[in-house]
C-alpha cells in the first residue's frame, strides 16, 4: 500500500463515521431513529438501496467472475426493472398506508402475530448468516494489498457499528448515498484504467473480440432444453423468472431494503427510490463485469503469476525451511512453466485471431481460416484456467487456503489494483471497496436491530414501550449485531458461505414475498393461514434442497431426470407453494377462524 492511497482511505473512513454519527444528534423518537423521520428524498434513498445491495463482494468477486467466466452473471440482475414495478404497485403503497416500521409488522395487521414473528425470525436468521460474510470476504482479499485481515475486520466492524448505533437510519441512508457515489467513481476509474492498459494494437474492440472468442460475452443465454435451464446457474430464464421472485422477496420483504425506502417522505418518493435501481442496476453490473473482461484481455498480453494467489505461497516459501518447502517449490515451478507455455500460446493465438478478423463479422471466408486459431485460443485459455485451479490445490495443500477456498479469480482485481492502477486512483478504488462493504453492512445492522427490537421485543410486551426506550434498545441491539458480525467474520473462514449468501436468501425470499401477495390475492386468507403457508413455503424449499436436489432421479415423460435445480429457481418454488397452501388453507374454517 502506498502512503497517499492509504491516507485517502483513512480520510474517507473518518469522514463517513463523522458524517454518520452527527445524524443522531437530538433524535429521541422511534420514527426519527428507525425511519429517518420519514423525510427522505427519492434519490438519497435510491442510492442507499443500491449501496445496500452492492457489497465489496460485488466489486471484487464480480470483476473476478467477468475475468474467469465472462458476463453471464448479468442474467442474475435482468429481472430487477420488472420486479421494481411490481413492488411499486403492491407493497410500497401498502407499507406506507399502514405506517408500519417493519415489513413484518404489516403481516401482523394482515394475518396474526405468529406470522409476524416467523417472518421476523426468518429475516434475522438469514441476515445474521450473511452479515459476517460482508466483512470477511473483503478482509481475505485485501490481504493481497497489504492490509492484514484483522485490521479490515475490526475497522469495518467497529466503524460501521459506531455510526449506525448513534445515527440510526438517517446515518445509514445518507452515508450509503455518499458511498454509492464513491463506488461509482471507483468503478469508472477501474474501467478507464483497464481500457488504457490494453495494448495499443488491441484496443477496446480487440479486447472484446478476444473475450467473445473465449465465450466471455454471453449476455443472452438461451438454452435448448428445460433440464439445462433448471441446472444452469445463470441464463435468460433463471434470471428473468427465478431472479424476479428473488428480487421481489429481497426488495419487498427483506427489512434491510424495506427500511431504506420506508423512510420516504411520500409513497411517490419511496416508489421512485426503487426505480433508481430499476434503471441503473443492470448497466452498473454490466460495467463491473466489463472491467473484469478487460482485465482478462489485459492479462492475455501482460505477464501474470501462475495463479493470482501465488505471491502468498512465494512469501511463505521464501521464509520457511528449505527441506519442507522443496516439494511445494517444485510444484509451483511446474505450474509456472505450464502457465508460461500456455500464456505464450494464448497470446500468439489471440494476435493471429485479431489479425484475421472475427468470423462473425468477416463472413464465411474468414470463418474457415480462423476456426483453428479460435480452437487454439480456447485450448490455451482452458490450460491456464487449469493451472489456476491446480494452483489453488497447491495453496490448500500448503495450508494457506481453507478446503472450501477454490476461487483464485477473487484475487485478480486486487492484483490489477496493486500493479496497474496509478497512485491516487488506487486510493479511490480502495475507498470504493470499503464503501461497498460498509454500506452493505450498516443497513443489515440497522435492520437486524430494528426487527429484533420492534418485532420481537416491543410487539410482545403488554403495553407499547415509550419511544426513548425503543430508541435506546435499538441502539443497544445495533451494538450487539455489530459485535456479532465482527466476531462472525473472524470465524467465517471455516464455513463455505461466500457463495452461499444468495443461496440462503433464495430459500426464503420467494416464500416471504408470497405471504404479502397472498394477503392481497386471497381475502379469505387470514390469521394462522399466514404463518402456515410461510412455513410450508420455506419448509418445502429446505426439503427440496436437502432431500431431493442432486439426490433423487425422477422419470419425466419417459426420460430419467437426475434432479438438478439451480438456486434461483428456489424462489419461484417457495412462492408457488405459499400461494397454493395459503389458498387451500383459507378454505378451512378451523385454521381460518381464530384471528379472523
Amino acid at each position: 500500500m502506498r502512503a497517499l492511497d492509504l491516507a485517502m482511505l483513512v480520510a474517507f473512513l473518518a469522514y463517513i463515521v463523522w458524517d454518520g454519527a452527527r445524524r443522531g444528534r437530538g433524535v429521541k423518537d422511534a420514527e426519527g431513529y428507525l425511519l429517518a423521520g420519514r423525510k427522505m428524498r427519492w434519490w438519497t434513498m435510491g442510492l442507499s438501496v443500491m449501496a445496500t445491495q452492492a457489497s465489496a463482494i460485488t466489486l471484487i468477486s464480480t470483476t473476478g467472475q467477468g475475468f474467469a467466466d465472462g458476463m453471464r452473471f448479468l442474467h442474475f440482475y435482468l429481472a430487477i426493472p420488472f420486479a421494481m414495478v411490481i413492488l411499486c404497485a403492491t407493497v410500497v403503497p401498502w407499507f406506507h398506508r399502514s405506517r408500519v416500521f417493519t415489513a413484518y409488522e404489516y403481516l401482523e395487521r394482515r394475518f396474526d402475530r405468529p406470522t409476524r414473528l416467523l417472518a421476523s425470525v426468518l429475516f434475522l436468521v438469514t441476515r445474521a448468516l450473511a452479515v459476517g460474510t460482508v466483512i470477511y470476504a473483503p478482509s481475505v482479499v485485501l490481504t493481497s494489498v497489504g492490509i492484514p485481515k484483522w485490521v479490515t475486520i475490526v475497522a469495518m466492524g467497529t466503524l460501521s457499528t459506531i455510526y449506525t448505533a448513534i445515527g440510526g437510519n438517517t446515518a445509514v441512508i445518507i452515508t450509503d448515498a455518499k458511498q454509492m457515489v464513491v463506488m461509482v467513481a471507483g468503478i469508472f476509474a477501474c474501467l478507464i484504467v483497464a481500457w488504457v492498459r490494453l495494448p495499443d494494437d488491441v484496443g477496446l474492440v480487440g479486447a472484446l473480440k478476444i473475450a467473445g472468442a473465449t465465450q466471455r460475452l454471453d449476455t443472452f443465454r438461451l438454452l435448448p432444453d428445460w433440464r439445462a435451464v433448471l441446472a444452469d446457474k445463470y441464463n435468460l430464464f433463471s434470471g428473468l423468472i427465478g431472479g424476479l421472485f428473488l428480487f421481489l422477496g429481497y426488495f419487498g420483504a427483506d427489512q434491510e431494503q424495506v427500511q431504506r425506502y420506508l423512510a420516504g417522505a411520500s409513497v411517490d418518493q419511496s416508489r421512485k427510490s426503487l426505480l433508481v435501481s430499476a434503471f441503473a442496476k443492470v448497466p452498473m453490473q454490466f460495467v463491473i463485469l466489463l472491467v473484469g473482461v478487460l482485465i482478462y484481455a489485459h492479462y492475455v498480453f501482460a505477464p501474470a503469476p501462475a495463479f493470482f494467489r501465488a505471491p502468498e505461497l512465494e512469501k511463505v516459501l521464501a521464509g520457511g525451511s528449505a527441506v519442507a518447502a522443496a516439494p511445494l517449490r517444485a510444484r509451483l515451478d511446474e505450474l509456472e512453466s505450464r502457465r508460461a507455455a500456455a500464456s505464450s500460446q494464448r497470446e500468439t493465438a489471440a494476435r493471429a485471431f485479431l489479425a484475421q478478423g472475427a468470423p462473425g463479422a468477416g463472413g464465411a471466408a474468414g470463418g474457415a481460416t480462423t476456426a483453428p486459431t479460435i480452437a487454439d485460443l480456447r485450448r490455451a485459455d482452458a490450460a491456464i484456467a487449469q493451472v489456476r485451479q491446480d494452483g489453488m490445490q497447491l495453496l490448500r495443500d500448503a495450508g494457506l487456503a481453507k478446503p472450501d477456498e477454490k476461487n483464485d479469480a477473487d484475487f485478480v482485481f486486487t492484483r490489477f489494483l496493486t500493479t496497474e492502477v496509478p497512485i491516487g486512483v488506487a486510493g479511490l478504488v480502495l475507498a470504493a471497496i470499503f464503501a461497498a462493504a460498509i454500506s452493505s453492512l450498516v443497513s443489515p445492522l440497522n435492520s437486524l436491530a430494528t426487527s429484533a427490537v420492534w418485532d420481537l421485543w416491543a410487539a410482545t410486551r403488554a403495553r407499547p414501550p415509550p419511544q426513548e426506550q425503543v430508541v435506546r434498545a435499538t441502539r443497544i441491539a445495533t451494538l450487539f449485531w455489530g459485535v456479532f458480525a465482527t466476531v462472525a467474520a473472524f470465524y467465517m473462514g471455516s464455513i463455505p458461505v461466500i457463495e452461499q449468501v444468495n443461496r440462503i436468501g433464495s430459500m426464503v425470499y420467494g416464500s416471504m414475498f408470497a405471504v404479502f401477495l397472498l394477503g392481497w390475492l386471497v381475502p379469505r386468507a387470514r390469521g394462522a393461514v399466514g404463518w402456515v403457508s410461510l412455513a410450508a413455503g420455506v419448509g418445502s424449499v429446505l426439503a427440496l434442497h436437502y432431500g431431493v436436489n442432486h439426490r433423487l432421479v425422477l422419470r419425466v415423460a419417459g426420460v430419467e431426470w437426475p434432479v438438478n435445480i439451480e438456486f434461483l429457481w428456489y424462489n419461484l418454488i417457495g412462492f408457488l407453494v405459499v400461494l397454493l397452501v395459503g389458498f387451500l388453507a383459507s378454505r378451512f374454517r378451523r385454521i381460518d377462524s381464530p384471528s379472523a
Partner: peptide, 30 residues
Amino acid sequence: MSTRRLYVLVLAWGVVTLLLLWLFAKAFAV
C-alpha cells in the same frame, strides 16, 4: 410524470436492456 407513465418507462427500459444485451452478445459471438 404520472406513476403509470413511469411504470411503462421502466418496463420499456427492461425490454430495451434485453435487446441491447442480445445485440451485444451477437456482435461478439464466435
